[in-house]
Design a protein around this nucleic acid. Sequence first.
DNA 1: AGTGCGATTGACT
DNA 2: GTCAATCGCACTA
Length: 201
Amino acid sequence: MRRLTRAELPIGTSALARFLIGKLLVSEYPEDGITGGRTSGRIVETEAYPPGDAAGHAFRGPTPRHQALYLERGHAYVYLAYGTSLMCNVSSEAAGVGAGVLLRALEPLEGIELMEARRGTTKRLDLARGPGRLAAALAIDRSLNGIDLCAPGRLWLAAGAGKPGPIGRSPRIGITREVDRPWRFYERGSPFVSGPARLRV
DNA sequence: AGTGCGATTGACT
DNA sequence: GTCAATCGCACTA
């Protein structure tokens, strides 16, 4: 498994969102107990929140909460939504420019049993289908906010085994502004993609 | 200092 | 399909 270098990440938020389909997300929790170990999955669904996007968290300028979105591309931005679900993003522009790519779904690869334990279900399709479930399956929490996903650590990006299948795109899910922008990317036909059936073909 | 609101999920009718 | 849970924080005053 080869870690992605920053130079490999395309410049531009939408380009990065598309590029990440078929890549791997790896979580390496210290093996200090029953919840420790390595989990990973293939990224099958992303959403781009480019600079100037009214639906993006960086739209109103930098604040302490959104600071990680302003890091050079390839850093993690983790936040809590609805008081219940953690979301994991990849910062996507030059340092000082606020933008990100939301990771919405994984096809589980390694550490299936660990994911099952963390998620409280053995339904493989549901382990990491949806941004909150993805974060739970890989034990992503706010302590990872701001870390470099191109460096050794608790969470990082890796190259995929093969080339991804055909990539579809659609409007983004669950937002109230800029609802018509086709900035969601997904692997066509994958059962691990979230959203209604019509948004998975 | 108080208020409103989510880039969702899971339980329930 | 509907709906409440639950929390940090940005925004207003």
